[in-house]
């Protein structure tokens, strides 16, 4: 049973498709990097998984239950705009969230808030910094004891120290409870060290979906003469060319032919290659 799976999911807002024909499955216990440029459909996908948005086509399931306008009890969602009751203190907010949930761990919330340096529990949520608000929102999400944690841009408004603090809390959650996590970001560098699964979305479509090590092992960056590209095997993802030299990103390329140098791509160049290809397809 996958914590999250999509079958041909599409979402249309009036005339614009935010997502189209998205199919993927997130295996249990993975930390998934949901990566893509701004406006790629990441937020729509997460809001859909949280049961806030209904798919126009296809079906999205959390723990094998179609998400039909309801958040699955085992799912916690951190929304991008961090909706919190701003006029309450952190303590009151905790009480409010506890009251709104059947399953709630006050201990877990206390533990997480205790790890956060910058959060005074008697301060009004409104007076906290944006970063502290994000951390409080994550604490509230963990209070539900989720088995799937959906985080929409959790690191975007954090300073480096708070970022490390927050990632550590999330990773500890994974270590302690085996929680599956889907983290979105438009910055891959935020997520590289902590994720083991890549879901690359652009133009409303899934471009890459898979275990990061496996995805990297499947691809090759080949550098060689422009004139000699016919010798290269595999599927061409994207290419950059100078007058003489071609740099090609390929899937399933096999060994580099004579005159070409082949290396395994790092995650950045792989993602960049796919995004470039996707943009070129859209511009055509």
């Amino acid at each position: 049973m996958n914590p999250l799976s999509a079958t041909a999911v599409g979402k249309r807002y009036r005339t614009r498709w935010a997502l189209r024909e998205c199919s993927f499955a997130v295996p249990e216990g993975k930390v998934v990097a949901l990566v893509g440029p701004n406006g790629a459909g990441k937020s729509t996908l997460l809001r859909m998984a949280a049961g806030l948005v209904r798919p126009t086509t296809g079906e999205l399931r959390t723990f094998d239950t179609p998400t039909d306008g309801r958040t699955h009890p085992d799912v916690s969602f951190l929304a991008q705009d961090r909706p919190l009751y701003r006029d309450l203190t952190v303590r009151e907010l905790t009480r409010a969230c506890a009251a709104m949930n059947d399953r709630w761990s006050a201990d877990r919330v206390r533990e997480v808030l205790g790890l956060l340096a910058g959060v005074d529990r008697d301060a009004k949520v409104d007076t906290l910094s944006a970063g502290a608000r994000t951390q409080v929102a994550i604490a509230m999400a963990l209070g539900r004891l989720p088995r799937l944690l959906l985080l929409d841009e959790p690191l975007s408004d954090l300073d480096p120290l708070a970022r490390d603090e927050t990632l550590r809390i999330i990773m500890t959650e994974v270590a302690d409870r085996g929680t599956t996590v889907v983290v979105s970001s438009h910055l891959l560098s935020d997520l590289r060290e902590v994720c083991d699964h890549l879901l690359l979305v652009d133009g409303g479509r899934v471009q890459v979906d898979g275990d990061i090590e496996e995805v990297l092992a499947e691809h090759r960056v080949l550098v060689g003469p422009v004139a000699d590209e016919s010798a290269v095997g595999g599927t061409l993802i994207s290419a950059t060319r100078t007058g003489r030299q071609s740099t090609l990103l390929l899937r399933g390329a096999g060994r580099a032919p004579e005159g070409w140098a082949g290396t395994e791509p790092d995650l950045e160049s792989l993602v960049m290659g796919y995004l470039r290809a996707s943009r070129e397809r859209r511009l055509r």
């Binding site: 949280a50 049961g51 806030l52 958040t71 009890p73 799912v75 916690s76 969602f77 929304a79 705009d81 909706p83 919190l84 009751y85 969230c97 709104m100 949930n101 059947d102 399953r103 509230m140 539900r144």
Partner: peptide
């Protein structure tokens, strides 16, 4: 803030 309420149980 309705999102906060809608994503609780």
């Amino acid at each position: 803030t309705h999102v906060l309420a809608f994503t609780q149980s």
